[in-house]
């Protein structure tokens, strides 16, 4: 069976975003970028399924400019078999991304489609669910465990008060949460080898998909910071203070 893993090359999760003084919007053109950590977890899960002999091909797909190839090389170093870049210079919104991925799913016919539960950055958390709905297949979001059995995928997912287990017909879309696995450490020789592997490139605008933005980010601001804690001497002072501000009845 084939697994398709969608990979986003996005702002490094350790980098604090800055607002550009001219545009008033977050400026990510110059910041350090990396593979979205939730996508790395998806890749690791696909590789583990392959190591168990349940999957025979893993295809990674990224959407973006030439720089997104870095994340596809990362995917190669983790153990994917093929990498695809859908090239575009304009940042795309989740609905357009889901439509492009649908076009790739139609071409590749994978049995399983993995995405991260969200991408670090805009934190929209929409693409996997949209892709499943557009494909008309089942979706399991926030996966913390995955098991392939009898032509179905059994997914344990994180819900409000614990976990829930679903069984989905294949093909299905699964979005990875943090606890699905811990991605392996990439060895340097693997990274070197990954640099030599081919990346097939498609042009986004040639895939017959409506890529137009549907919404507009008007402005961005940093949330108000607290001035710093008022230090209290002991528990009695704390309790008195909390009563004073009426959070304790």
């Amino acid at each position: 069976m084939k697994v398709l893993v969608a990979v986003k090359h996005t702002i490094d999760h350790n980098v604090k975003p800055n607002i550009h003084p001219d545009t008033g919007l977050v400026d990510i053109a110059q910041v350090k970028k990396a593979i979205n950590p939730f996508d790395e977890i998806s890749l690791e899960e696909a590789v583990r399924l392959k190591e168990r002999g349940q999957v025979n091909e893993i295809v990674a797909v990224a959407i973006g400019g030439a720089e997104a190839k870095d994340s596809l090389r990362h995917a190669y170093a983790l153990g994917v078999d093929r990498a695809l870049l859908i090239e575009t210079d304009t940042p795309l919104q989740p609905l357009a991304v889901a439509k492009l991925l649908k076009a790739i799913v139609t071409r590749e016919q994978p049995g399983l489609i993995f995405l991260g539960k969200q991408a670090v950055g805009e934190d929209y958390g929409q693409t996997g669910q949209m892709l499943a709905a557009l494909l008309g297949v089942g979706v399991a979001t926030f996966a913390s465990a995955i098991q392939l059995k009898d032509g179905q995928v059994e997914v344990t997912r994180e819900v409000d008060r614990g976990t829930q287990t679903l069984s989905l017909q294949l093909p299905a879309v699964v979005t990875a949460d943090l606890r699905l696995n811990e991605p392996r450490f990439i060895k340097l020789p693997n990274l070197m080898m990954a640099k030599k592997k081919p990346i097939e490139t498609l042009v986004a605008s040639e895939l017959n998909v409506d890529l137009a933005p549907r919404f507009r980010v008007v402005s961005a601001s940093e949330p108000q910071q607290k001035p710093g804690a008022i230090q209290l001497a002991n528990v009695q002072e704390l309790v008195a203070k909390l009563r004073q501000v009426e959070v304790l009845q």
């Binding site: 977050v26 670090v120 980010v217 008007v218 961005a220």
Partner: peptide, 20 residues
């Protein structure tokens, strides 16, 4: 049709105009 939502792990509040 204008909303405020957090992004970048809550470090940024974005104001979005939805044209839909």
């Amino acid at each position: 049709s204008t909303y405020v939502r957090p992004s970048y792990a809550g470090n940024i509040l974005s104001t979005i105009e939805n044209l839909e």
